[in-house]
């Protein structure tokens, strides 16, 4: 049963991830007043990459990208997708936080071995940017964990369904806002498209990736979109819950199905908003981005945490 769930969630996340990539391109094209590529264009790209004859810079170049993808997929298993959760009960949010490290680290190792300074610059930027938004993310997660007194993500989702979504509760709205503010940075979207800046440093970490490496990297990219937004939906928007309307069928197959659909719809909404932000903003410099994150989202998150702690 568990293995089936794993396969299912893996497929859902992969498909949704690729869908998100296509959606982003389509929406961007529409905002540009263009027709744009078909929504499955990223899939075509991946297939093409996969059939190209790639170059490799060494063993870690291969291994790193695999580790990266493993990391992303592992996180997916720890996320409850609606009512589907493979093993969101073995370690909870802390494990998620840690496995989230795996993906950038694998990428970093892989592109580090490519011996290209553009890649190194990209990784350096990515790590610094991640460090700065991780300040905020950790505080957000801590406020949630302190509020709900659990480290299990699934329980947080369940508690929200029972009471009120975190985003709607006045105690947790500040962390929610902070999360929204750093969401583009987590997705690597435009005001924060610093690490993978294609015009400036030739796509940064993935500069030497081609062929199947690039294929894996693109899949990974989609997965990261998926994870970031799924985490937000789970933490703040009650996961697959819709004001308890479908409580009566929870536990059944259709219940799970409905909750999954609701979950995906919520995700798409959030993603579309992020793409809008991506469309209208120019790129920031790394210093500006770091400063922004450490000023506004961080202070909001800290105030949120203080409120939570003070009230408990």
């Amino acid at each position: 049963m568990n293995i089936l769930l794993m396969i299912l969630s893996a497929i859902i996340s992969l498909v949704t991830g690729m869908f998100f990539l296509g959606l982003a391109r389509k929406i961007m094209a529409m905002i540009h007043w263009r027709y744009g590529p078909p929504i499955y264009q990223p899939l075509i790209d991946v297939i093409r990459y996969f059939h190209q004859r790639a170059v490799s810079h060494g063993f870690i170049f291969d291994l790193g990208i695999i580790i990266s993808l493993i990391g992303s997929l592992l996180v997916v298993f720890f996320l409850p997708l609606g009512n589907i959760s493979s093993f969101s009960n073995s370690g909870g949010l802390l494990v998620i936080l840690y496995i989230l490290i795996l993906s950038p680290l694998g990428l970093a190792l892989s592109s580090g071995e490519s011996a290209n300074p553009n890649a190194s610059i990209g990784i350096s930027r990515k790590l610094i940017l991640t460090l700065s938004y991780e300040f905020v993310l950790i505080i957000i997660l801590l406020s949630l964990m302190s509020q709900y007194q659990t480290i299990s993500l699934q329980e947080i989702v369940m508690l929200q369904a029972r009471k009120v979504w975190s985003f709607a509760s006045w105690k947790l709205i500040l962390p929610g806002i902070a999360y929204l503010l750093i969401l583009p940075a987590m997705l690597g979207f435009r005001p924060f498209e610093i690490a993978g800046a294609s015009q400036e440093i030739s796509a940064g970490p993935s500069v030497e990736f081609g062929g199947k490496y690039l294929a894996l990297n693109t899949i990974n990219h989609g997965l990261l979109h998926f994870i970031t937004i799924a985490l937000f939906v789970n933490l703040f928007l009650g996961g697959g819950d819709l004001f308890g309307i479908f409580d009566s069928i929870s536990g059944t197959f259709w219940g799970s199905f409905v909750s999954l659909i609701i979950f995906l719809i919520k995700m798409i909404l959030i993603f579309v908003i992020s793409v809008f932000i991506n469309a209208v903003f120019p790129r920031l410099r790394l210093e500006q981005a770091t400063k922004y994150i450490l000023y506004y989202p961080l202070s909001i998150a800290i105030v949120g945490l203080i409120i939570v702690v003070a009230i408990n």
């Binding site: 059939h51 004859r53 810079h57 291969d62 993808l69 011996a115 030739s202 030497e208 062929g211 199947k212």
Partner: peptide
């Protein structure tokens, strides 16, 4: 993933000077 990865075309090993 490794199986998937291996099923793609075999990559060519290049040295550090063959770099963009």
């Amino acid at each position: 993933i490794v199986l998937f990865f291996r099923s793609g075309r075999k990559s060519v090993r290049v040295d550090q000077y063959d770099n963009y």
